[in-house]
Design a binder for these strands. Structure first.
Lengths: 200, 200
DNA sequence: TGTACATCAGTGAACGCGCGTTCACTGATGTAC
DNA sequence: TGTACATCAGTGAACGCGCGTTCACTGATGTAC
């Protein structure tokens, strides 16, 4: 069992992280303020700096947690889909990705804000999580065209992800050059069908 | 002819705009500082506010100019391409779009930074420019599938733009989930071919 | 268990800096005659 | 053309605010005996 010190420290750490994510979802990552977080977490301003090196480190941990939540949701969606066609699997993944973005607009946006190079340690977990995400696309593509080389397939996987991400991004940002929220499913379906037909 | 006052005013206005664009390309739009711009343009800090309402207005005009340059380049690329196949036309547009993004990374990035709603007047020129840009895609698609309804075609145009934009965006941002600069052409070709084949 | 001391998290006022914007003043340009 | 006055752009020090971070102090928790 943890001592009271470590317990309280862990509690506050969790409270700060939760407060950060809540603030990001409500106001966007650009509006984060140390004073707000301290107030939300019920601690003094200085307490933040006992637990985290600086605000950037806290924000970094928040991004990790957001990414983890998204990945969890996608993995959940894709479990027990072995009986679906490759096309339907990709449809499901796309739909889940869009749902997450729509349900958590500002969290999702925060994931893609700022350089990756501004992060601390080019973390292993990120590479792993990304691999799992890409695997959800790679698998179905491989089933559609089993003879494609690994290199080719890797390129196609990233291309398809980028394309669908682009459709969802411009839609979420309400750009006139993008598609409306209502159109996203039709748009991504059209892309997925085109590509799967082309690969056969 | 302009009086000396108006002449100098116009000169300074142009100098400030040029300085802004130069700074954006070198340091990124987030690093713009009023003091730097005044120094670059050879005027006092306060002079900026004689000409522009505030920094946001100056930045807004810079964005307009950047968009104008991009559109000019795309229109230039697409002039005299009537003899090309629709697929080749779209290839050319994509290539030119990517080139612009690659040659002017931070200018291009600046175009997609910040809300559109933070802008002043939802400007008509923007709608017009966007229409022309979309027209470069809409035209070829219409040739490939002349019987598609306008509504459908509009959706496909925006979808295709979003997809290609996504590929280029993640590439420019060096995301591991995107494709490398070397792969962009292959990636977008693959998308364009899939889609044009699918539409026939 | 109790006591004395040590450690370390919590506190929040204060620091320091950056930066957009203002404003009283100066001097160049424009106008009237 | 020249003179007197009016106008307005140019100047840059100063203002004001926001905000991340620090630090001397307090008090709770841990440890030794």
């Amino acid at each position: 069992m943890l001592g009271k010190r470590e317990q309280k420290r862990a509690d506050l750490k969790a409270k700060l992280l939760a407060a950060t994510i809540l603030r990001i979802e409500n106001d966007g990552i650009a509006s984060l303020r140390a004073r707000d977080l301290a107030k939300d977490a019920g601690c003094a301003l200085g307490a933040i700096y006992n637990i985290y090196e600086d605000l950037d480190e806290l924000i970094f941990h928040a991004k990790v947690e957001i990414f983890r939540r998204m990945e969890e949701r996608l993995a959940d969606t894709m479990s027990n889909t072995h009986d679906l066609s490759p096309l339907d699997q990709m449809r499901k993944l796309t739909s889940s990705y869009f749902q997450f973005a729509q349900d958590n607009t500002k969290l999702w946006t925060a994931l893609f804000t700022g350089d990756l190079t501004d992060q601390r340690d080019v973390p292993k977990w990120y590479q792993d999580a990304l691999m799992r995400l890409m695997g959800h696309i790679h698998g179905p593509l491989k089933k559609i065209a089993p003879n494609t080389s690994d290199k080719e397939l890797s390129l196609q996987t990233r291309t398809l992800f980028s394309a669908i991400h682009g459709v969802i991004l411009l839609s979420i940002q309400d750009r006139p050059s993008g598609v409306t929220h209502q159109e996203v499913e039709k748009a991504t379906d059209w892309l997925l069908e085109s590509i799967s037909k082309h690969m056969k």
